[in-house]
């Protein structure tokens, strides 16, 4: 048993707690709770919200090299609070966890970092925007006056892989749910959730075989809450898809006694339509043996109202984030009524 697992189990709400989820349904006592109708403000809400229990900056990118070979990169910073608020030094109740993933068609790399708040090892500053843990960082390179997320540089490095990517946004921020208030269960659990799904990406991957120049598309998710899941919810399957016609689809299902689905349909111009519970359906089409368990790596996604019928296949079925908190996360290819690329995250298997 590892102390960090315990620590993150103890923190009742880290989002990717794939196993057990003990305590995720507990009361949000002392912590601020998302409220319907509260307008998000930027750049303030790009920064950290220490009064909420959990929060993340979650970037995924589907990438190709000059030969058209597929890659995927993930950069995530999680914040988890033992108590609301922030203070200086070791007394800070904030705990940070960084995850980096890099997928090639035959290998999947993953790494993690942990840090306590209050001492400067990890933090997020709203303006100028910079999120950091150790030498991993997501830093705004946007010109003055522009939204901080309109241009970013991200980098992460571990013993056997690394990447350095530059991202330029070609569209606006997108608020999920009702103006960023995103419901997560039939019982009404909710979070604040917005994205920047319009990045074009250039950069370099450091692989054991040497550096590889890549281009592609990126998607940033920002979410914070104090109690995101209902007590019976055991895990989720989350998709972010960029279709070749320029539309984007964010869709997820939360598995529990009753499956809860939600999603956002985004036009190439950035107009968002929230998809209520039941609008989308997710059907496993094939599993793979990953880390000793059966994981549905091929999916059928249907949105009958819009005539949308997509089949997804992983670039690498073994995209297992083999970390203290482990889960499946990797790039996918999309075919069917529309073609495209995307990212899939599956937890709780």
């Amino acid at each position: 048993m590892n102390v960090k697992v315990l620590l993150f189990c103890l923190l009742p709400a880290a989002p990717v707690l794939a196993q057990g989820f003990a305590g995720l349904g507990t009361d949000a006592e002392g912590f601020a709770v998302p409220e319907r109708g509260r307008a998000l403000q930027f750049p303030r809400d790009h920064g950290a919200h220490p009064d909420y229990r959990i929060e993340w900056w979650y970037l995924t990118a589907t990438l190709q090299d000059a030969d058209g070979r597929d890659y995927g990169a993930q950069w995530t910073l999680f914040r988890s609070a033992l108590a609301p608020g922030e203070s200086e030094g070791w007394d800070s109740p904030q705990v940070w966890m960084g995850h980096a993933g890099l997928t090639t068609p035959d290998t999947h790399f993953s790494a993690e970092r942990f840090a306590r708040g209050g001492i400067g090892q990890a933090d997020v500053a709203a303006a100028p925007f910079a999120a950091r843990i150790d030498d991993w960082h997501m830093t705004s390179t946007a010109p003055d006056g522009a939204d901080a997320y309109s241009a970013l540089q991200i980098a992460a490095r571990d013993a056997d892989f690394g990447y350095d990517l530059r991202l330029e946004a070609n569209g606006p921020l997108v608020l999920h749910g009702q103006d960023g208030y995103s419901v997560k269960s039939a019982a009404g659990q909710a979070s604040y959730y917005y994205s920047q799904p319009f990045y074009s990406v250039t950069g370099t991957l450091d692989l054991p075989g040497g550096p590889v120049a890549v281009t592609g598309q990126g998607w940033l998710d920002r979410e914070w809450s104090s109690q995101p899941l209902a007590s019976d919810q055991t895990g989720w399957d989350w998709f972010s898809i960029v279709l070749e016609d320029g539309h984007r689809l964010m869709g997820f299902q939360l598995r529990g006694r009753q499956t809860f689905t939600a999603g956002t349909w985004i036009t190439p111009q950035g107009q968002a339509t929230a998809l209520p519970d039941g609008a989308l359906s997710f059907t496993p089409q094939g599993t793979a043996q990953v880390a000793g368990r059966d994981i549905p790596v091929r999916w059928q996604i249907d949105w009958p109202e819009q005539g949308l019928s997509l089949q997804t296949a992983p670039v690498n079925p073994q995209s297992w984030m083999d970390l203290t908190v482990s889960y499946w996360e990797g790039p996918i290819r999309v075919t069917g009524s529309h073609d495209g690329r995307g990212y899939l995250e599956m937890t709780g298997y």
């Binding site: 840090a115 001492i119 400067g120 090892q121 950091r132 150790d134 030498d135 490095r157």
Partner: peptide
Amino acid sequence: QALFVELRRAG
């Protein structure tokens, strides 16, 4: 202690 943070920041 600052040296600890400095080293972590340097990877």
